[in-house]
Structure formats: C-alpha cells, structure tokens
Simulated scan of single mutants.
Amino acid sequence: MSETHGTGEAGGPAERVPPEAILAVPVRHWGRVAGAVVALVVLGLIVWAFAGAESIQWDVVGEYLTDGTVVEGALRTLWITVASMALGVVLGVLLAVMRLSDNQVLSGVAWGYIWFFRGTPVLVQLFLWYNLALVFPILDLGFYRDEMNDVMTPFLAALLGLGLNEAAYMAEIARAGVLSVDHGQTEASHALGMSRARTMRRIVLPQAMRVIIPPTGNEFINMLKTSSLVSGIQYQELFRAGDTISSRNLAVMEMLLVVTVWYLFLTTVFSIGQYYLERHYARGSQRALPPTPWQRVRTNLGTFRTRSAVRKETT
C-alpha cells in the first residue's frame, strides 16, 4: 500500500508530526494510604508508650543485652533448637517413608506415633521425659546400668521432648513433599533398574525439597520460640537466664525486653537464611527467581522516583 503524504507550501511532502507522548498518571489508592497512616499512628503510639514509661529503666535493658548469662542462655537456646530440629528432621523423614510403605505394620506404627505426639502438648511431653525416673528409677540396658535421674538430665529431656514432638510434624511435611513429586518419576527410575531406596534418595527427595523447605524453615523458627518451654524443666536457656537475673535485680520488665530483643534477633537471622534457601530450591520451577529484599528495596525506590517525576510533570 502506498502512503499518502500531504504537501507543504512548496508542493513537496509535508513533514510528519510525531504523536504526543501519552502521560500515564498512576491511580491513587486512598484506602491503602489511610490504612498505612493508621498503622503507623498505632505503631508510633505503642513505641511512645513504652519509650516514655517511667517504670522501665532502658539503661538496664542496654546493660544486660550483652550480659554473659544472657548470651550463654541464647547460645543454649540455639544449641537445643538445632539439636532438636536435627532429630526431628531425621526421624520425620523416616516416619514419612514408613507411612508411605505398603507394609501395614510400618504404616500403622508411623500413624500411631504421629497421632500421639501431635495430640499431646509439648509441655506435657517435656515433663513426662523429665519425670521418667518416677516410672523407671533404674535404667538397665544390660551393657549399661545407671539411675534414671542421672541419665535424664534437663538437656536430654529437652532434646527428647522437643525433637520427638517435632518429628511428628516433620513426618507430615516430608510425606506431603514426597506425594508432590509426579509418580511417573518413580516409575521411570524403576524401569531403569533403580531400587526403591535409591529412587527415594536420588530422585524423589531432591525434587520434594522444594515443597519441604518452606514449612521446615517455619518449623525451625517455631522451635526456636518453643524452646522457651524447657525452662520449666530447669534447662538454662534464654528465657530462664532472663528470669534468673530478674529474680535478683527485680527488673522483671527490663529482662523480658532483653529476652524479646534476643528472640527477635535470632528469628530475623534465620528468617533471612530461610528466604535464600527457598530461593535456591526454587531454581528450575520458576522462570525468574523471586527478587531479594535488597532488590525489592531498589525497585520500590525506583518506582517512587518515577511517580514523583510524573507528578511534577502533571503539575
């Protein structure tokens, strides 16, 4: 098709006039703005109430944040959390495999374990282990014999109480991850001559990690907070360390704030680690990896600058 050109004064083709650029003005969401203002006002009032409270000695809070007893308690909290979570993950994967087994005995045992430990509170389980000497005063394994009170230390009772309870939840998480893998993967590996154990280890579990990792990270952070319950069985973790100090200096609220700051610090660190671990296992399932927190900040800053420039042009 031939393009028609207008003629100028000299009879030649007229110059094309480029169309005006479309100025896109973003829609203002006043509801979001109002909600953000209300949230900031409420947060500011809460901070102001605590900061201005005369009964709280903030210098005491700052002094005990790095106190040796508190730091040691935080390390003990971290240690019992990691140890209990490791026990829960290993036993949970084993229970998930048993639950998926064609053997009705193994499947029934796994179901009964999960039913019991998910159906009773963690605190009750901790006290059951800690007071086991009331039922079995002597531990006699044939090759080893000792009084149960000497064997069942606060650390061992905390490890068994938290770890065995966590295994019940990890079993269901691992089972959901295994079931998320297409059954054709298992059939293909069996057709290649791979055994069931090797198929589970080399084919199914690596693919199931994408589903298992997020709830496992959440369980770890929850375990970090639940570990405060072991203070009831005399284990000297973070909460008990703060409680011990407050019983001496009577700074109850100050020590609770110290413990709160430490818990927030630990959960924040592991939340960041969980995010990058999830991002790592998301490779291959998403065309583009989710942005990191720093990338989101830069994107939001760029969007804010663009909107500011557009508003200046409109005005």
Rank of each mutant, 00 (worst) to 15 (best):
Arg201Gly: 13
Gln125Cys: 06
Arg118Ile: 09
Thr66Cys: 09
Gly68Cys: 04
Arg279Pro: 07
Ile80Tyr: 00
Tyr64Val: 02
Ala83Glu: 06
Val297Arg: 04
Leu289His: 09
Gly12Gln: 11
Pro291Gly: 03
Thr226His: 04
Leu224Thr: 05
Gly142Ile: 05
Lys312His: 09
Thr216Tyr: 03
Leu65Ala: 08
Leu179Asp: 13
Arg279Thr: 06
Glu54Trp: 09
Arg118Tyr: 07
Gly242Ile: 03
Ser107Ile: 05
Glu9Trp: 13
Thr81Asn: 05
Ala167Tyr: 00
His5Thr: 07
His5Ala: 03
Met148Ser: 11
Val261Ser: 09
Gly62Leu: 12
Leu205Phe: 06
Gln286Met: 14
Val27Lys: 12
Ala86Trp: 00
Ser195Thr: 15
Asn222Leu: 14
Glu166Asn: 09
Tyr235His: 04
Val204Gln: 00
Thr226Ala: 15
Pro18Asp: 12
Gln207Tyr: 00
Leu106Gly: 10
Ile233Tyr: 00
Trp48Val: 13
Leu238Cys: 02
Glu15Ser: 13
Pro13Phe: 13
Phe304Gly: 09
Ile56Met: 08
Phe220Met: 04
Met152Gly: 10
Phe116Leu: 15
Glu147Lys: 10
Gly119Ser: 12
Phe50Ser: 06
Asp67Tyr: 02
Glu254Leu: 08
Val42Ile: 14
Leu179Lys: 12
Gly44Lys: 05
Val33Ala: 15
Glu219Arg: 11
Gly52Cys: 13
Val41Arg: 03
Ser107Gly: 13
Val71Gln: 05
Gly177Lys: 01
Thr199Leu: 05
Met152Ala: 11
Tyr169His: 10
Ile56Ser: 11
Tyr144Asn: 07
Pro18His: 14
Leu159Ala: 02
Val60Ser: 03
Glu9Thr: 13
Arg196Lys: 10
Tyr235Phe: 08
Lys312Arg: 14
Arg307Glu: 10
Ile80Gly: 01
Gln104Ile: 15
Ala21Ser: 11
Ala74Gly: 11
Gly284Ser: 13
Ile221Val: 10
Leu128Ala: 10
Phe155Thr: 14
Leu65Pro: 03
Ser308Asn: 14
Ser180Leu: 04
Leu289Asn: 06
Met98Ile: 01
Leu256Asn: 07
Ala197Cys: 04
Leu301Pro: 01
Val261Glu: 06
Ile56His: 07
Ser107Phe: 11
Ile114Met: 12
Ala197Ile: 08
Arg305Asn: 08
Leu45Val: 15
Glu147Leu: 12
Arg99Cys: 15
Gly161Met: 02
Gly88Asn: 03
Ser231Thr: 12
Thr244Trp: 02
Pro19Met: 07
Leu159Cys: 02
His183Asn: 15
Ile272Lys: 10
Lys312Ala: 15
Gln104Phe: 14
Pro215Tyr: 04
